[in-house]
Design a protein around this nucleic acid. Structure first.
Lengths: 306, 306
DNA sequence: TTCCATGATTTGTCCTAGACAACCCTACGT
DNA sequence: ACGTAGGGTTGTCTAGGACAAATCATGGAA
């Protein structure tokens, strides 16, 4: 049924689906239309993908998530694809402080990385750390990975380190119980929680109450939770990999099922959130915009100004 | 393409796949073979699943994960399925302390739940808390959900609360740097990290060094990380929902790619891990078995006994 | 020029129908 | 009691086709 990758023989289509995020149907239809990927076949006529093809597919997927169309990418060579990875934010433009941290990720110095991030947090304070370090770092690390400068496990190491740091920053102090009460989660299929965690920090700073539900809560359950937990705002996070149309549709469905008094805030680096306005949903472009959102929310409340 | 669930019209097959964990192919072939699920069709002839069918599918999936075969389940009615949810560990058998906590989950009292867990942690100490509270609670909560006694969001709330508690228990103190150095992660497709976190706590107690990579690291990346981080033991966790055969195959592949000196420990409530022994992989049945594993590892090391 | 509406193309997902290998279980024979 | 052979079960794969929604490109009006 599934042999994953026994001794470098190649990968089955289901493994490729998991590792790239491209559906089996998509992989097959690309093969027919564009001639890529062109996997070998095993004795049963089943597709066997090489490691190289999978790496190229992952790269293509990331470029598509960023907004390029498949037809312009799938036929390109690896070199041509890499030439497109420069996101306009070249390494030269980045603040030297961030480049320094990226360097630690590249050399997978887990302990040093942790120390450096802790130090930055202490120097800058949580809010500035989020704005100037944590938030801009994620796309930089992502781009570095695309250019092959860091490995996947190094990205994992970075994510995990940052997560531990942010969590302990919140947990160390008592939790506020001010308004608004914000439920934080993602839709099913969206696994990235770093954005959620940064939002939680920002909300915590501004005295809002957070009810974190972890990732992947179905819409109906979000509505149930919002009712029983007396939620004022539902906060969702969307990474670039999340299908934009699904995000918009599901947000609309959530909006419709939620009481009118409950707001919906959507953040993350997914471009679909900001292409067109979604009725009854507040797009949050940056972590720093969360503080404005909180202030505005409080101002809009009839008499509950504290 | 995807309409998720606009105004209760029903769910598309891709949504059902995400929410149940059953592949589209599986859903279609069950329909042909067993006559269930039997979704309506929209104007384009595409399947439209009702909320009821999806709930039944989720229940069936959990029962299958526990070891029952589909043919014996798929034709059953909802009542007959529910009759099978009693896992032999009836609520009556459970320690009153755990039942009490379950009660807090049922009433979604987030704050109370947090306090109660914190109190248990203080009373019992971390090791006993893991053994007597955290570890046995997860299946109890899962079963309560199957019987419809708690909602999905309540399960999320519980998981998140416990996670925060365990993370802060570790983060509050300095990290040990003793041997063995253990890399902790899951394979792609396995998202549950509670097991990983409990393992991390246990290892931390016993002075081992943990290198958490978060969930879903591809095998090749695990090997890379193990080499660069001078890892002695790779620890993997498997929930019941993870396909057993894939677990075994991928563990074997990992074992083959890893240096002989690096051990592989596999834990979690997935039954496949314990059905038959896997060459070169140490199965860890309970969190408490981790301490033995550490002791044995240290004894097996030539001269590094500290 | 800028803006909007229309038509063409691209693209992901869905459909049917069939095939097969690997697994589980049973029953038989040693 | 133990192991092995056969038969049923099950998930995943194949192919080729279809279509709606999204995007892009074109042309006309302000």
């Amino acid at each position: 049924m599934d042999e994953s990758e026994l001794a470098g023989k190649g990968l089955a289509i289901s493994t490729v689906e998991r590792e790239t995020g491209l559906a089996k149907d998509t992989l097959r239809v690309w093969e027919k239309r564009y001639g890529f990927p062109a996997p070998d076949r095993d004795a049963n006529g089943e597709r066997v993908y090489s490691r190289d093809q999978v790496e190229k597919l992952i790269l293509i997927k990331r470029l598509i998530d960023r907004g390029t169309r498949p037809a312009k990418l799938v036929r390109l060579s690896m070199e041509e694809l890499l030439a497109r990875t420069d996101p306009g934010v070249g390494a030269a433009d980045d603040p030297p402080q961030l480049v320094e941290i990226l360097q630690l990720v590249k050399t997978h110095s887990a302990v040093e990385l942790r120390k450096r991030l802790e130090q930055a947090l202490l120097e800058q304070g949580l809010e500035e750390f989020l704005r100037a370090t944590a938030a801009p770092l994620s796309p930089i690390v992502g781009d570095a990975w695309m250019r092959g400068e860091i490995e996947v496990f190094e990205e994992h190491l970075y994510t995990e380190t940052l997560q531990i740091l942010l969590r302990s920053a919140i947990a160390a102090h008592s939790r506020p119980d001010g308004a608004p009460r914000v439920l934080l989660t993602t839709f099913p299929g969206e696994q990235h929680i770093l954005g959620l965690l940064m939002a939680e920090c920002m909300l915590w700073i501004h005295g809002a109450t957070c009810v974190p539900l972890g990732p992947q809560t179905p819409v109906r359950e979000i509505v149930l939770a919002a009712e029983t937990q007396r939620i004022d705002v539902v906060g969702l996070s969307f990474s670039p990999a999340y299908p934009g149309q699904t995000a918009i549709d599901t947000l609309a469905a959530l909006r419709a099922m939620l009481p009118a008094g409950t707001e919906v805030w959507a953040g993350g680096s997914n471009p679909a959130l900001f292409r067109r306005r979604i009725d009854g949903v507040l797009p949050v472009r940056e972590v720093s915009a969360i503080s404005d959102a909180v202030v505005n929310w409080r101002a809009s409340q009839p008499r509950h100004v504290d």
